[in-house]
Simulated scan of single mutants.
Amino acid sequence: MALYSYLLLWMGTFLGVQLSAFEPGTPHALIFGWLYGINALFYLMIRSGCSERLKDPSLTFLQMATGILATTAILYFSRELRGAMLSIYFMVMTFGVFALDRRGLMLMALFTLTCFTGLQVFELSTSPHSVVFSYLIGHWIILALGLCWFIYVGGYIHNLQTRVRDQRESLREAHERLSAIAIRDELTGLYNRRHFLERLDEEMSLAERNGSALHLAIIDLDHFKQVNDQYGHAAGDEVLCRFSNLASQGLRRSDLLARYGGEEFVVLFPHASKQACMAAMERLRDAFASQDFGFSGAMQTSFSAGLAAYQKGESAESFTHRADTALYEAKAAGRNRIHLTGE
C-alpha cells in the first residue's frame, strides 16, 4: 500500500514540476529514490523475520516517519500548492489508523507537526520576504486541526477493533466450550456416547477397507449401585473419575475411550491384536482393583468387561451387541473378569 501510494505521489510531483506548480529544480527522483530504497529495506526486514525481534514488528512507526519526512521535503518545493499538498500528511496518518492506538497516533501527529513547523521556521529564517505570514499560520492551523481529528477518529477505530477482537476471542472460546460439551462427558471428561458411535462408524469403515484388526470392549463397574447407596453419589462420582483417569493413562493414545452411560465405559482398539487388547484390559483391571478411596478403606473395586473382534461386513449394532453379550457373560460368570467373544 505504501509503495503504491508513493508511486502516485511521485507521478503527481513529476507532473507538478512539468506544469511549473513546483520549483523547477525539485529533486523528485532523489527524494522518491531514497524513499523506495528505505521501504525496500523495511520490506526485507519484515519478510526475513528480522523485524519480529522489535517491539513494532510491522515497522509502522518507521514507515510513517519515513513518509512524513519525505512529505516535508516535497512540501518545501511545492510553492502555492502547499495548502493542497498538506493532505499528503493525512494520507500518511491514514496508514496508522488501523495499526496504532490513540497514544501512538498522538506521537505521530506530534512528529508531523514538528516536521512541518521546522520547515516553516527554516523558510522564515532563509527567505523571510517570500513568506506570506497569514498563509503560514493558516496552513499550520489546518494541519493541527486535521491531526487532532485523526487522533480522535483513529483512537475510536482502535477501540472498536479492540472490542471486536475481544468479542471474537470470546466467541471462539465459547465455540470451543460448546464443541467440548457436545463430545465430552461432563463428569469424567471422556468422550460421550454420541461421539463414540460416530467414531465407531469411521473406524469400522477403515477396518473394512484396510482389513485391519479392530476390537471393542464394553466395561461395567461391578456393584456400582451399592457404592451410591452406601456412600452417596459423591463417592460414586469419585469412583467413576478414578476409573476414567486410570483408563486414560493406561491405554494407548490411539485407543478410543468413552463413557457409554452410567457406570458403563467403552474402549475401541484399532490396529491391535486380541492378545494386546486382553493384556491392556487385564492391566487396567489390576490397577482399578488396587485403588484406595478415602470414603471407605475396606471397599474393593472391580469391573467386568466384554471384548469382541470386528467381523468384516457386520453392522455397528451387531458389533456392539456381541461385545455387550460378552459383558453379560462375564457378569454371569461371577464378575471381575474379561470375556472374549467373536473369534
Rank of each mutant, 00 (worst) to 15 (best):
I88D: 09
A323Q: 08
E263G: 02
R102N: 10
I151C: 05
Y89L: 00
R168M: 13
F32C: 00
R337V: 07
I31P: 10
Y6C: 15
R335H: 03
A298P: 14
L256P: 12
F269W: 03
Y191H: 07
R168W: 11
V97D: 02
L113A: 14
I219G: 00
F98C: 13
Y6T: 13
H158R: 01
A258K: 03
Q230D: 08
H215W: 15
Q18V: 05
Y43Q: 10
G211D: 00
I46L: 09
K274V: 06
M91I: 06
F77T: 00
L160N: 03
I88T: 12
A323Y: 06
G83S: 06
L86T: 00
R252G: 05
A2R: 13
F269V: 05
T126S: 11
A258V: 00
A234Q: 15
I183K: 07
L107V: 12
M108Q: 13
L136M: 07
T126G: 05
A326P: 10
C277T: 01
Q291H: 04
R177K: 05
A29Q: 12
I218D: 11
L100I: 00
I181N: 15
L44K: 10
R283Q: 09
R53F: 09
E282R: 03
T301L: 15
L206S: 15
L75Q: 01
T162P: 08
W34M: 11
V164H: 11
Q300S: 09
D229I: 01
R184L: 09
G261W: 04
F293T: 08
N228W: 01
N245G: 09
Y328H: 02
V132P: 12
G16E: 08
T325N: 13
L15M: 09
L113D: 15
A234Y: 14
F265D: 05
A272L: 15
L187R: 01
A316Q: 14
E23T: 12
I151L: 03
L200K: 08
D229V: 02
A180D: 13
T301P: 13
I218W: 08
D201S: 06
Q275V: 09
G313Q: 07
E317G: 11
W149V: 14
F14Y: 14
W34L: 15
T112N: 05
M93I: 00
L206I: 14
S212H: 05
S58Y: 08
G334R: 04
E263V: 02
D324P: 07
F32S: 00
K55I: 10
S205H: 13
I38E: 08
P57K: 01
G211V: 00
